[in-house]
């Protein structure tokens, strides 16, 4: 595979002074091609945001990479110095957060916010930057005559604000956009628009996309391949359609069973068939498979050691003893 990004055995710990260290990511390993749209699926606390931040070299204080590598275009970001990272952050890899309101400056007009990002990374005259910013805002659906380019963030809806953040994210023509729950704070209509926009940009600008969500339907709308995460590990990796329709890992199967049908009045009971229990405490993981405490198909071996990667097909991997 012609890969843009290669994450190798990435293990990240949180443990500021005194706290018991938590392994937020454990041996995460995957490759991403330059033209791929990848989804990260997992419940709260599974390590999705930690992975996103690690990719940008933006782990919060207390978080550190314990082992592993992040190869991006031949550079190992884990070993790179701050100068190299700053050049990559926001220019070659950019991040779109869940809460657009926090990413924007409340007292600055929309077009100026995009200009600011452009000038941070490129040497442009004021006029060039202004023209470029209007071009970028048009890319995300705001024509100059819409008046939105001169608006302040509080005058925009949540969906419009997220578009502005996306215009900033594509400003320097990055090779990769990491979007962490970009639609969670939006109502459903705006949610759909943003997903369609991300998918279009991915095709149009030929950029790689990592989309993070706890909702399979969100990922299904925009990505070709999905990694399922549980307790900081990848438990399944496969083509989106295949994985959503025919999941292999017991956790993925459980998660998709809580899926919600659109058409009411079907014969099934109204109660949800869901994964019981809560995710494990990452500071006190027992040996064996991390999902064992909730797994309906647990076997004896599952409590002894952790399952290794099993390749089910060319592009399909699962970490579970049932398949070893």
């Amino acid at each position: 595979m012609d890969s843009l990004l290669h994450v190798q055995n990435l293990t990240v710990r949180y443990g500021a002074d005194g706290q018991r260290p938590k392994s937020a990511l454990c041996d995460v390993d995957f490759e991403l091609a330059g033209d791929e749209a990848l989804g990260l699926l997992g419940e709260s606390g599974s390590g999705k945001t930690t992975l996103a931040l690690a990719l940008l070299g933006l782990l919060p204080p207390g978080g550190s990479v314990e082992r592993g590598a992040i190869w991006f275009r031949g550079t190992n970001l884990v070993a790179a110095g701050p100068r190299v990272l700053r050049k990559i952050q926001g220019a070659e890899i950019s991040l779109v957060h869940q809460e657009p309101a926090l990413a924007l400056n409340p007292v600055m007009r929309v077009a100026d916010q995009v200009i600011e990002v452009l000038r941070a990374h490129q040497h442009l005259t004021g006029q060039q930057a202004r023209a470029k910013s209007l071009e970028l805002l048009a890319e995300v659906g705001f024509a100059p005559e819409s008046g939105i380019t001169d608006a302040f963030p509080h005058q925009l809806s949540g969906g419009q604000r997220q578009r502005v953040v996306i215009a900033q994210a594509i400003a320097c023509r990055p090779a990769l956009i990491v979007a962490d729950e970009p639609t969670t704070a939006l109502d459903t209509a705006a949610q759909r628009e943003i997903l369609v926009l991300l998918r279009d940009l991915h095709h149009r600008m030929k950029l790689a996309l990592i989309l993070i969500s706890h909702d399979p339907a969100v990922l299904a709308a925009a990505v070709q391949r999905i990694l399922v995460m549980y307790a900081g590990r990848i438990v399944e990796d496969g083509p989106a359609a295949q994985l959503l329709q025919n999941p292999s890992h017991p956790y993925t199967r459980g998660l998709l069973r809580c899926g919600l049908p659109v058409i009411p009045g079907s014969a099934q009971a109204r109660r949800f068939d869901c994964v019981p229990g809560e995710p494990p405490d990452l500071a006190a993981l027992s040996p064996g498979c991390a999902f064992a405490s909730r797994c309906p198909e647990r076997m004896e071996v599952c409590g002894v050691c952790a399952p290794a990667e099993t390749r089910l097909a060319q592009a399909q991997r699962v970490w579970c003893f049932k398949y070893e």
């Binding site: 459903t188 997903l195 339907a217 329709q245 899926g259 049908p261």
Partner: peptide
């Protein structure tokens, strides 16, 4: 009608 159109449909949800 607008709300209905915004439902994220995938084959999965129609099971």
């Amino acid at each position: 009608r607008l709300l209905k159109e915004s439902i994220l449909t995938t084959p999965l949800w129609i099971s």
